[in-house]
Amino acid sequence: MPRERGQKVVATNRKARHDYTIEDTYEAGLVLTGTEVKSLRAGRASLVDGYAFIDAGEAWLDAVHIPEYNEGTWTNHPPRRKRKLLLHKQQILKLSSKVKEGGYTLVPLQLYFSDGRAKVEIALAKGKREYDKRQALRERQDKREAERAISSRKYMGE
């Protein structure tokens, strides 16, 4: 059987980009059990409440929902469990110092397969205030309206 190539996205956390200002992103491997991998390959996962943390020099991903595998039996996994993240030691130390510094948190942005291996994109993020969120929405709406006006003017001119 040929090896998988490319990237297949399983789940994205779109709300994270709305709620947080993304400072830096990291790609981390995941330590998973067999039924978790099968469930992910079926395209089932949710990153909505997920977060990452560093404990005793190890990075962990918590509260990410990977549902039980339908064909699994007693070997099935609990849907919400702590999963170890695979990062380089220097990356873990850097993230740990930033989070301890205050104001920063680790948020999962995307869960995907890269060349057949499960990966998660985590972000070093700072929480947005309510007015920042409203301002970002307003800017997005203004940009959309401007693009509409430009495109309608192109059709009128021709």
Score class of each variant (00 low, 15 high):
residue 10 V to W: 02
residue 11 A to L: 09
residue 11 A to N: 07
residue 15 K to V: 06
residue 17 R to H: 10
residue 18 H to W: 06
residue 18 H to E: 15
residue 18 H to K: 12
residue 19 D to V: 02
residue 20 Y to P: 04
residue 20 Y to M: 02
residue 20 Y to Q: 05
residue 20 Y to V: 05
residue 21 T to V: 09
residue 25 T to G: 07
residue 25 T to M: 05
residue 26 Y to W: 13
residue 28 A to T: 03
residue 28 A to G: 10
residue 31 V to W: 04
residue 31 V to L: 13
residue 33 T to A: 01
residue 35 T to D: 13
residue 35 T to F: 10
residue 36 E to D: 03
residue 39 S to L: 03
residue 40 L to A: 03
residue 41 R to F: 05
residue 41 R to C: 02
residue 41 R to T: 07
residue 44 R to G: 01
residue 45 A to W: 00
residue 45 A to T: 07
residue 46 S to Y: 06
residue 46 S to T: 13
residue 48 V to L: 14
residue 50 G to T: 02
residue 51 Y to Q: 02
residue 51 Y to L: 08
residue 52 A to G: 09
residue 52 A to C: 12
residue 53 F to H: 09
residue 55 D to C: 06
residue 55 D to G: 00
residue 57 G to T: 11
residue 57 G to R: 10
residue 58 E to F: 12
residue 58 E to N: 12
residue 58 E to M: 13
residue 61 L to W: 00
residue 66 I to V: 14
residue 67 P to G: 11
residue 68 E to F: 00
residue 68 E to K: 15
residue 69 Y to V: 00
residue 69 Y to L: 09
residue 70 N to I: 13
residue 72 G to Y: 03
residue 72 G to S: 14
residue 73 T to A: 12
residue 73 T to K: 13
residue 74 W to V: 11
residue 76 N to L: 08
residue 80 R to D: 02
residue 80 R to A: 06
residue 83 R to P: 05
residue 85 L to H: 10
residue 85 L to V: 10
residue 85 L to E: 05
residue 89 K to C: 10
residue 90 Q to G: 08
residue 91 Q to W: 06
residue 91 Q to H: 14
residue 91 Q to K: 12
residue 91 Q to I: 10
residue 92 I to E: 08
residue 93 L to I: 07
residue 93 L to E: 15
residue 94 K to P: 03
residue 95 L to H: 08
residue 96 S to G: 12
residue 97 S to W: 07
residue 97 S to D: 14
residue 98 K to Q: 15
residue 98 K to H: 14
residue 99 V to Q: 01
residue 100 K to I: 10
residue 100 K to N: 14
residue 102 G to T: 00
residue 102 G to H: 09
residue 106 L to C: 04
residue 106 L to E: 05
residue 107 V to C: 00
residue 108 P to K: 04
residue 111 L to R: 03
residue 114 S to I: 02
residue 115 D to G: 00
residue 115 D to C: 06
residue 116 G to Y: 03
residue 116 G to R: 01
residue 118 A to W: 03
residue 118 A to I: 01
residue 118 A to R: 05
residue 118 A to V: 10
residue 119 K to S: 02
residue 119 K to R: 14
residue 122 I to A: 08
residue 122 I to R: 03
residue 124 L to W: 00
residue 124 L to Q: 01
